[in-house]
Structures are given as C-alpha cells and as structure tokens.
Simulated assay, not measured.
Amino acid sequence: MVKVELSAAEAIVLFEMLNRLVDGDMLADDAETQAATALIDRLEGGLPIVAGVDYALRLARAREELTEDIED
C-alpha cells in the first residue's frame, strides 16, 4: 500500500482532473482507466466537500489556492 497526503485543494483539483481524463477517454489503456477510477473513488470518499450547489465555487477557490504562488 502506498499513502499520499494531499491538501484539500490538491485533492479537489486532482479529483476533477482524473474525472475529466476518464470521461474524455484520454487514458492509454484499461489499466490506466482502472487505476484512475480507483483513485477517483478514494478521493471522492475523502474530499472535504460534497458536490452540490457551491461545488463549482469551491473548485475555483482550490484552483486559485494552488496557483497563487506561481510566478508569471
């Protein structure tokens, strides 16, 4: 077993990215799809928010948090 610790912002953004890759059929093979789906399930169970009315706002805030220290 491998354990990885993520901030809440990282988990939310990673969850969205993986869903987009799986939904867009952008993975190389069934093994990648299975690994991504398993990670999505684990992330979803531990997300600090529940998808709902304010989910888009929280996702936007998470993206902003992760990019605020990146220099242009």
Rank of each mutant, 00 (worst) to 15 (best):
M1A: 14
M1D: 13
M1I: 10
V2C: 02
K3V: 12
K3L: 09
V4E: 01
S7M: 01
S7L: 05
S7Q: 07
A8F: 08
A9R: 00
A9F: 02
I12V: 15
I12S: 02
I12M: 14
V13Q: 06
V13K: 05
L14M: 12
L14S: 11
L14H: 09
F15P: 01
F15E: 00
E16V: 06
M17Q: 04
L18I: 05
N19G: 11
N19V: 02
N19P: 00
N19A: 02
N19F: 04
R20I: 02
L21W: 03
V22Y: 04
V22E: 03
V22P: 09
V22L: 07
D23W: 10
G24V: 12
G24Y: 10
D25A: 09
D25W: 12
M26N: 03
M26W: 00
M26R: 05
M26K: 06
A28E: 06
A28K: 00
A28L: 01
D29M: 07
D30T: 02
A31L: 03
A31D: 07
A31G: 00
A31Y: 06
E32P: 08
T33I: 11
Q34D: 12
Q34V: 08
Q34T: 12
Q34E: 12
A35V: 03
A35I: 01
A35P: 01
A35R: 04
A35C: 00
A35K: 01
A36R: 02
A36P: 04
A36W: 04
A36S: 05
T37V: 06
T37C: 03
A38H: 07
L39R: 07
L39Y: 02
L39C: 10
D41V: 14
R42C: 06
R42G: 04
E44G: 13
G45C: 15
G45D: 15
G46M: 14
G46W: 10
G46D: 13
L47W: 05
P48F: 07
P48H: 09
P48L: 11
I49C: 01
G52V: 01
D54N: 14
D54V: 12
D54Q: 13
D54P: 10
Y55L: 08
Y55G: 09
Y55M: 05
A56I: 14
A56R: 08
A56M: 10
L57Y: 08
L57V: 14
L57W: 11
R58V: 09
R58Q: 14
R58F: 13
A62W: 08
A62G: 13
A62M: 14
R63E: 12
E64P: 05
E64R: 13
E64L: 12
E64Y: 08
E65W: 00
E65L: 00
E65D: 01
E65R: 02
L66E: 11
T67E: 15
E68D: 15
E68V: 15
D69P: 11
D69T: 12
I70D: 01
E71F: 08
D72F: 08
D72R: 08
D72L: 10
